[in-house]
Design a protein around this nucleic acid. Structure first.
Length: 558
RNA sequence: AGACCCAUGGUGUAAUGGUAGCACUGCACAUUUUGGUUGUGUAUGUCUAGGUUCGAGUCCUGGUGGGUCUACCA
């Protein structure tokens, strides 16, 4: 046990933590946090962050906070807070403390006052356009604001009046006094507080000024005693400012910001802004549309927390740009569902089969295994009748040499039932095959012939009279290209028009009592779960993911 | 352009100066009452040029390529 742990390699963040621990840094504490802004639903990139931060706290016997980074009253909302809590919990993580940046508004204000007193901040009244002008560019230094040398007293008075709501939005701005010539743009007297007379979903109308991210985030981390503050790569250039603020204000705790790369997955987009657009412009049915890479969408699609955690583990932690093949996500869910999902038979696209030598009106209950991967799942009975449905794609009038399934004159096994042989094809006026006449071998009951005769193919089936109908929603990737948000065309033009296909199918009767959220493997077809739209009268299933289909690959090649 | 960051098979990630490994994907075979699962095998890799060293994916320098920043968003 001890040995295997030592063999397992550490990611770069774990290496930093173990070094800190070894050096006795932070009183040997590990305290992480997940700091979402409540302005959208969580996606699988957030899930990765939750798994990392929550997992690190668990691994190093530390603490893990959930903190809503609610410093922008214009975009944030309670609805998002609730969905975020729900998603984090569902993923299997329990936070030690739940906080809000808005809990610290008074402390943050006091810190700002302190900064003014240290002559490290000033009230500026340049307009946004003027600011841009004074800001300089990457190659040219900026210019000092003409308001930069106000007295401490004047700054204090102005800042207080900003707080008291004496000025309109945008009139004044509290800025740090650092260095307008710094090559790091974030050091060019960054904005700390802006006037925004907006109702905040938690603090109401109490505040007329709101702190900016750079000011609020590092201080919130310090206030909570966070030791390792993990964020994504785009905040790398903010780190000197993050440290400047905590060092200048001489906070008790000095959390360390560590940046890692974002998660990207092929054939989807992973930015809240773009996901929001898909929702608002009705390209999907909502944040929880099963095609969305949101936690709620994946959940509705039938993904399990275990599969998502496994995926987040597999993608790894690093600082390079990456693009994870969506097949890795599919691997994780297949692996989990393969162990757990009960097997059933469902015919997606039915083709009628009449067993000509089977007694009219007879119903036999045949025994079927619920899960070959899990003996404890037990067995069930499936009704067999003279008229059945099989999958349209399991019959081919002119088969290739590698075809194992049904064709004129060939024999196949009906799973858990009988060997049948196709004797006759019935077509409609357009030449489409609408019915098959087959004979069965009564001696092959259960699926084995006493004479040892072998069949190459086993296909699934459902009794035509005992089967139940259901709506099945088949999902495909939401976009037609691997990286819809790269390149010149607008990502919405790359939406896959066939990402949702709704069909009417027929399922074995045991599924009549399936509950919303339950997952099944429809043998040979894939994993399906009951959608929340499902009712007793109209069963609705989502296809979570198809099974690996070796035959489709062979067929594709020809 | 300036600052910062990154560079290992198709993809992702290990190797912490000493045999380039693992996973996904692909391909092949075996097993199979799911063309599923499982098992076995296999293909493909250290961006480049120098340097340090007995020895470099790892350290140093230059180049190249990619990313980020230049919001009163986070």
């Amino acid at each position: 046990m001890e040995e295997t742990e030592e063999i397992k390699s550490l990611n770069f963040i774990e290496q930093i933590i173990e070094k800190d621990l070894a050096e006795g840094k932070n009183e040997k504490r590990v305290h992480t946090r997940f700091p979402p802004e409540p302005n959208g639903y969580l996606h699988i990139g957030h899930a990765k962050s939750i798994c990392l931060n929550g997992g690190l706290a668990k691994k190093y016997n530390g603490k893990f906070n959930l903190r809503f980074d609610d410093t922008n009253p214009e975009t944030e909302d309670e609805e998002y807070v609730n969905s975020i809590r729900n998603d984090v919990k569902w993923l299997g993580f329990q936070w030690d403390g739940e906080y809000n940046a808005s809990d610290y508004f008074q402390q943050l204000y006091d810190y700002a006052v302190q900064l003014i007193k240290l002559n490290k901040a000033f009230v500026c009244e340049l307009t946004a356009e003027q600011m841009r002008e004074y800001h300089g560019t990457a190659v040219t230094p900026g210019k000092d604001s003409p308001y930069r040398n106000r007295s401490v007293e004047e700054n204090l008075a102005l800042f207080e009046r900003m707080k008291n709501g004496e000025f309109p939005d945008g009139k004044y701005l509290l800025r740090a006094k650092i260095d307008m010539a710094s090559p790091n743009m974030h050091f060019r007297d960054p904005a700390l507080y802006r006037i925004r007379k907006k109702h905040h979903y938690r603090t109401g109308d109490k505040w007329n000024i709101y702190p900016m991210y750079d000011f609020a985030h590092g201080l919130s981390d310090a206030i909570e005693g966070i030791t390792h503050s993990i964020c994504t790569l785009e905040f790398e250039v903010h780190r000197p400012l993050y440290e400047w603020i905590n060092n200048t204000l001489n906070t008790t705790y000095r959390p360390q910001q560590i940046e890692m790369s974002r998660l990207n997955i092929t054939y989807t987009v992973m930015s809240k802004r773009k996901l929001m657009q898909l929702v608002n412009e009705k390209h999907v049915s909502g944040w929880d549309d099963p095609r969305m890479p949101t936690v709620s969408g994946l959940r509705r699609r039938g993904y399990t927390p275990e599969a998502i955690r496994d995926f987040c583990e597999r993608v790894g932690i690093s600082k390079r740009e990456n693009l994870i093949d969506v097949s890795l996500l599919e691997f994780s869910i297949r692996e989990d569902l393969n162990k757990k999902a009960p097997r059933v038979m469902g015919v997606l696209n039915p083709l009628k089969v009449v067993i000509t030598n089977y007694p009219e009106g007879q119903v036999e209950e045949l025994e079927a295994v619920n899960n070959p991967e899990d003996e404890s799942a037990g067995k069930r009975m499936v009704p067999f009748t003279k008229e059945l449905y099989i999958e349209q794609e399991d019959f081919l009038e002119v088969p290739s040499k590698k075809w194992f399934r049904l064709a004129p004159g060939t024999e196949v096994r009906l799973r858990y039932a009988y060997f049948i042989t196709c004797q006759e094809i019935i077509k409609d006026s357009e030449g489409k095959v609408v019915e098959l006449r087959c004979t069965y071998d009564p001696a092959s009951r259960g699926g084995n012939s006493p004479d040892g005769r072998k069949v190459k193919g086993t296909i699934h089936w459902v009794s035509a009279i005992k089967g139940i109908s259901a709506e099945i929603r088949l999902y495909d990737r939401l976009f037609t290209t691997e990286t819809p948000d790269k390149g010149d065309v607008d990502f919405k033009e790359l939406i896959n028009p066939n990402s949702l296909q709704v069909i009417k199918s027929v399922l074995e009767p045991s599924l009549a009592i399936a509950k919303a959220g339950e997952s099944f493997q429809f043998e040979r077809m894939g994993y399906f779960c009951v959608d929340k739209d499902s009712t007793e009268k109209n069963l609705v299933f989502n296809r979570t993911v198809s099974l690996k289909d070796t035959w489709a690959k062979i067929a594709d090649k020809n």
